[in-house]
Amino acid sequence: MEYILQQFINALSFGAEYALLALGLAIVFSVMGLVNFAHGEVIAIGGYTMVAFATLVTANPWIIILGSVVAAALTSVLLERVAFRPVRYADPTTGLLTAFGVSIVLQNLFLLFVSPRPIAVTSLYFLDVPVDLFGIRISSLQLFETLATLVVIVALTLFLKRTIWGLAMQGASLDFQMVRLMGIRANRVFALAFLISGLLAGLACIFIMARRGSVDPHLGFNPVLMAFVACVVGGFGSLPGAVLGGFLLGIVQVAMLVLLPQEYGGMKDAFVFGIIALILVWRPNGILSPPVEKGDKV
């Protein structure tokens, strides 16, 4: 029983992290139809900012965290301005390839200007302490992660439902032309989407860095791949879908770890992606995607 509970909490915290990452992708996709593969590099920028702050500025972890979140948010907005504006109204494939390009450029810039080797960041270790909860031992990090994701979900929902800009962003995913006719500035909607996405990346960066304790040029690749998968499963462009997909992915991953025999451990990814492919066969656009007729004007 305790073992099951333990694994359930593991699944929950993995799922929370994926949901956090997936939301960052989904919010951009819902507004401009862009699969932002450079999201992972935004996370890496956050990590490198931690290094820079920790060595040059201060040892205070809260300032380091703040700095990295701000850096990630600014980078995200900057990327929108520099790289993604020219492909704003292009088809999703063009956007996807641009994002791949941006991601390759940034990764190699880290390689060029920082170092190909991992750099250790020790200032966040204090977040990760063992806690006893109802008789089972878990990491405080798992707790923080799950809580942070829940707070983000509530805050994002309130923002999207209760504020003009939130409504504008929701409207933008349905009919952008109409939103502009209502007097909302297109540039601001896009910038806002990327700002939120950057903030989410910064938040995810804190947890990833606290767990790994080091940053290297390829830090963002795996997280963004998982986020991508979560978005796909949940339905691209749907924010509830991203959350659902994230938690589902966490559950599938932990289930694979628990259920697969030891010697098949290397096949975990193959099984996870196989399940993803099957879900896509069942619902080609993801579980929570809105129904679209092929003849519809998009």
Binding site: A83, P86, V87, A90, T94, G95, L97, T98, F100, G101, V102, S103, I104, V105, L106, Q107, N108, L109, F110, L111, L112, P116
Partner: peptide, 22 residues
């Protein structure tokens, strides 16, 4: 010596092609 230059160039080729001549 500049490690990673080829990667930067490759990425830039993709980004610039997409932006100016999709």
């Amino acid at each position: 010596e500049v490690l990673g230059l080829s990667g930067v160039v490759l990425g830039l080729v993709i980004v610039l092609t997409m932006a100016f001549r999709p």
